[in-house]
Design a protein around this nucleic acid. Structure first.
Lengths: 359, 359
DNA sequence: CAATTCTGCTAAAACGCTTGATCAAGCTCT
DNA sequence: AGAGCTTGATCAAGCGTTTTAGCAGAATTG
């Protein structure tokens, strides 16, 4: 039995639950109109700063005062009802927190949306198809201006049927079929850039530790590597391409094989592999960048910027992906009819590469 | 002057911009009612599965068929207008993408909100006070059920005035003044747990590398360390507490000092410092966990799980923070009147700690 | 000075939905 | 047979805005 001592009127005891006072009903347009002694139409006109409207300065001021005094806030729901479409953009993501990647897409989308007066409505589906359908339904019911459908790693996807009931843009993924607008990172250019970092420091024998798992990134980054070599007139040597699982353990495990290749530099499929490789190299007494230069891919800040030495890498432009997705959705940026729009992957140079001393 | 060639009816050239066909007006309740030959009231009743309503099975079916045929979706804005309060919960964050932390708060909040039929409306303020005010205003206009105000690291904050116009809960931060509900990680317990990992493996001389910058975490984690030692009857030795900037470089730089202390184990303020420390230790030829045991704090997956050896640490429960925030907002979980509600920080044991061989 | 144009403001419909009040039938009781 | 239920459905008001058409009076014009 709970003691009855808590019946005291204002319990100030340590564990007393917070009493939330009921909120007053929000102030409406009508109340403002009454307070200012004008019609609701007038108030609306003032609130929305309609240029065309003819309202005397006197009235205008009275209305504004009333608004301030009452603390009026327009009811966006009512506005939306009238206008037919909300100032929402929906973002459905398959993994919000697994990596910082999705966070950056959200961030970019949110900033850009905000810039154009839109708010972001997000839903996390964890890859669950049913959740996804529900999430899209919810967004549709809220009459979103459009939906950004995003994945945390670059891949092909199929477009859920209900997505077609709204405007939508695929972000960080694409669909083979029908003209769905999409924006993805330019993996090929990224791979080229990564390789070029090494090239421009004089390296000629450059290994590439690719991922084992199939993905657009796997193909694109390899292709970029080839293009960069070719541009320098270096023949592609398939023997210099290794494959490993794209994480720290994979990079670590590839060390042995790598060293057999007698290269002066390595380009890793991603930063996590580079991190593992650092360990492998160090265990064998090899110094970065003096004994071997390393570049990664992804620019995962927590890792790349703080490795010893800091890792040169190529950025996956997730923020830009989100922002570009929004622009495309709003029709501010044109989509290509035939293929996903590719976003540039910028180079980030740190200290894991050094000019090769002439032999 | 733009060339007129684009006037061709359907440009099919490779770079032709995608023509978006105008969307048909969404189907309304009224249209469904007409199609089914009933009143809108009836349709509303069956859509909302009102138990009390008396609708014959025949009618019910006709309505449902019409709904399906027309592809009707309720207009949530209209519903909200009527009901007065939306199914939105707002989340304002000061840094969505800087760390994975905010992502996890969002994730937890979104999952929990969804579970109760709410959608998450998010805004990123980047710490900008003006943006913050705008974001909150927007949420108020959308008549959110309440607002979660979150910070990416645990700290004191002051509550923006406009926040008080709505229900709100502070997440990962707290306010000294007035009874604002808040939920924060239990830093003390976390510090205790971290130390206990070491203790239970037989370590007695345990160093603590604390942060230099003041924060609830700094005090709490230290206090937890003291409590754990005390519980084991080990006198606190201030000489075993170092301080460094809480990142990789800080941890690396602390190595030297640490080794002068002649300890068998270290507890680092966070995983990033531990990562730096790994490098420092390795450079000096010391092996983890054999020569020295290490535990971190935060459980930053990308780092902790993939260091060599994987790092034992304590989790910062960001997901739970977000989820608990939502529950508290919805009144499903009681807030304490006097202090922020503290969320448990779970231990994550990996391989950076080994039982100390008896001397 | 009458005709016209401006100026400042309002009335009222519409947006899509919910819900309490109401109603017409068909039943079941005495 | 009439009173009283029950059943199945409709009516209509109202939620808080926006916006078009229109109106009264003042100012300008010829």
């Amino acid at each position: 039995m709970i003691s009855q001592e808590n019946n005291s009127v204002t319990p100030l005891g340590a564990a007393a639950p917070l009493e939330r006072p009921p909120r007053p009903q929000p102030v409406t347009l009508r109340q403002v109109a009454e307070a200012a002694g004008v019609s609701t139409a007038t108030v609306s006109l003032v609130v929305n700063k309609k240029k065309a409207a003819r309202i005397s300065d006197k009235t205008r001021k009275r209305v504004r005062d009333a608004i301030r005094d009452l603390g009026y806030r327009p009811n966006a729901m009512a506005q939306t009802l009238v206008s037919g479409s909300s100032r929402f953009i929906g973002l459905v993501a398959d993994a919000i927190a697994t990596t910082p990647f999705a966070g950056q897409i959200i961030h970019g989308a949110q900033d850009e949306a905000w810039k154009h007066g839109y708010a972001l409505l997000i839903a996390n589906t964890e890859g669950n198809r049913e959740l996804e359908t529900d999430a899209i339904a919810m967004m549709l019911e809220y009459k979103v201006r459009g939906i950004l459908y995003s994945t945390w790693f670059h891949r092909a996807t199929d477009v859920p049927a209900s997505l077609r009931e709204s405007d939508f843009v695929l972000v960080n993924c694409f669909s083979a079929e029908s003209g769905a607008r999409a924006v993805v990172p330019d993996e090929i250019q990224g791979g080229r850039s990564a390789t070029e970092i090494l090239l421009k420091h004089g390296h000629r024998r450059i290994a590439f530790i690719n991922a084992t798992i199939p993905a657009p990134a796997k193909d694109g980054r390899l292709q970029g590597y080839k293009e960069a070599l070719e541009a320098e007139g270096i023949p592609f040597d398939a023997g210099l391409v290794l494959e490993a699982y794209p994480d720290q353990e994979g990079g670590y495990g590839a060390t042995e094989e790598l060293l057999k290749r007698d290269v002066t530099a390595v380009y890793c499929y991603n930063d996590r592999m580079a991190m593992g490789l650092y360990d492998g190299l160090r265990e064998r007494g090899l110094a970065i960048p003096d004994d071997i230069a390393v570049v990664g891919f992804d620019n995962q800040e927590v890792i790349a910027a703080h490795l010893r030495p800091p890792l040169s890498t190529v950025s996956l432009p997730h923020y830009e992906l989100g922002a570009a997705g929004v622009r495309m959705l709003l029709g501010l940026e044109e989509a290509q009819a035939t293929a996903p729009t590719k976003i540039y992957c910028p180079t980030v140079e740190r200290n894991s590469v050094r000019a090769l001393a002439p032999a």
